[in-house]
Design a protein around this nucleic acid. Sequence first.
DNA 1: GATGAATGAGTATTCATTCAT
DNA 2: GATGAATGAATACTCATTCAT
Lengths: 180, 180, 180, 180
Amino acid sequence: MRADAVRTRKALVAAAAEVFARSGADATVAEIAARAGIGKGTVFRHFPTKDDLLAAIVGDAVDELVAKAEHLVGHEDALREFMQLTAALLAGNRVLFDALDRVGADHRPQVRAQVDRLAAVAERVVAPARDAGVIRADVRGLDVVQLTCGAHHAAAPLAAVEPDVGQRYVDFVFAGLRAS
Amino acid sequence: MRADAVRTRKALVAAAAEVFARSGADATVAEIAARAGIGKGTVFRHFPTKDDLLAAIVGDAVDELVAKAEHLVGHEDALREFMQLTAALLAGNRVLFDALDRVGADHRPQVRAQVDRLAAVAERVVAPARDAGVIRADVRGLDVVQLTCGAHHAAAPLAAVEPDVGQRYVDFVFAGLRAS
Amino acid sequence: MRADAVRTRKALVAAAAEVFARSGADATVAEIAARAGIGKGTVFRHFPTKDDLLAAIVGDAVDELVAKAEHLVGHEDALREFMQLTAALLAGNRVLFDALDRVGADHRPQVRAQVDRLAAVAERVVAPARDAGVIRADVRGLDVVQLTCGAHHAAAPLAAVEPDVGQRYVDFVFAGLRAS
Amino acid sequence: MRADAVRTRKALVAAAAEVFARSGADATVAEIAARAGIGKGTVFRHFPTKDDLLAAIVGDAVDELVAKAEHLVGHEDALREFMQLTAALLAGNRVLFDALDRVGADHRPQVRAQVDRLAAVAERVVAPARDAGVIRADVRGLDVVQLTCGAHHAAAPLAAVEPDVGQRYVDFVFAGLRAS
DNA sequence: GATGAATGAGTATTCATTCAT
DNA sequence: GATGAATGAATACTCATTCAT
């Protein structure tokens, strides 16, 4: 790719990540283009449809989360760390939240695929703890992802007045997963 | 208010409750008016804006939940029952879910007020258990409402393939609230 | 229908007929609305889609043509008169021309139906002459419609410099249909 | 012009001829460039605008038709052969059809000039027959071109279900030109 | 000389709200 | 008092053309 195209694409992806993170999947292409300082047409040159751009941004976020999660596999306390890591990313990225939020409801196959990737790595994190009997036997990776997302969802509106509510809620949910 | 106006209003509220419950806050005024068998203009005569109508419907749903919750106060296992009751209502009423779901993000003060009422009764439910040391000391009524909503949120997309996922997730969260 | 709606609809249909006649099926809804002195939204209140409006306008033109053609059935020289009548209407109505022009290519079922109606009445006009051996045996109603449309098509670009070219071309084609 | 530029231009013209023939004047510059294996910018280096390219391709097609028509001049049955030849070329070349089809409506002077060349050779074909009294006295070369194009236009939408409709319609028109 | 990256005007449709009937 | 007719802002995507690389 040419140097100028690389620059433009970087600016576009950064702008899209920021705008999507702030406004969610409903952000308009016009706003993203303006934020990136490029024309609307240029957005479509790099990503044929808005959904492709969305999937790329969500994919980047999932990539980051998956990469970090890989390092947790096998760790003591890996599950709690994974949940807190996930919640932290969700807190800074509304579109990732939107994506996880709509598993099954969302008909965009590319976004759906990202959620599956995340559920897969979550399963690798949760499996050892489950096999060891530390957490309940019926907890799958997808459950962890969904519940962490739910905890974030519950915490988000309160974060302005209680900064650590996200961590607190994740702790509640984590505690609830442990074998009794 | 004249008797016919009362009848019209009743039909409108019933139609709005049904349509909002099914389609969520995005339901159109036109659909509600058609369902009520009245004109769109009449909707706006009774409620100045769509948000006012929305708040009234959410208020009714919250009234119902609050009334049921009142009866639970003092019961053994009141908290679990409250959470399951709330989750069940959320599952059957998309607009209630939407409303609770968007606390904070939603700038509609009237909707916000309903959540506060719900948090208040939840606090009355949770206080005895907390004082008795059965659940964690830092759990307030609002936390219970938010987390129950989060559990439902997490479960909703999976409900189609796993019907009892809602109950399972509420159980997880409930377990997480207990004092360790 | 209310009196004001009737007025608006009339203005809309008149404007659409004029604009479609001048600019063909590619005319924009915005132009039609402006011409009618109404808002774009009002167009869609009366006709759910642009194609519905288009079909209505084409339908009106076909209605007119069909009604006039009915009177010709059985007349001496009915076929020639039908062809000249059709050509005259086409000359004043670009969208009717567009509609006939795209039989088979046009995927709009409502427009297609109008062409079928026209072919049907043309068949009633042509059948007696064909049965009487005055015109060739392989000439169907649809052929007459298509060929008249073709004659107009051929004539249209020259009409500015040779006003009666349309009639002349229709005469050529009519002569070509006669049994040799 | 350098040798490589000549090669590029040849590839471009060949690609444009093919794509325009298949897709008509609405074909995109991008598709033509891709087909030619060159960049879009290069297209505009050789032809300042898309219309210039279009005119060149139409000009080539007209050249071909004119050359073939030259050989018909003086032949017995030259007019019928010219009309069938023209119709056959139109059937296989959508852009030629588009160009002839829009004479007058089309404001592109370069395209218009090609039609004039075609009308001129048609006149040379038709003049002997007209002077001999075989065809009507008021038939000029331009009429033949226009009517043949109209016949093809009339036939085109039906060609899918009746393959030889084009020939049939041309025969009708040819018959119509004969002196009665 | 060649490339292809960037541009941005143009368009059908929805829906909360207002106001003439 | 009730109606529903009218409004118009808001949004994704295409493609001929220009110009930096």
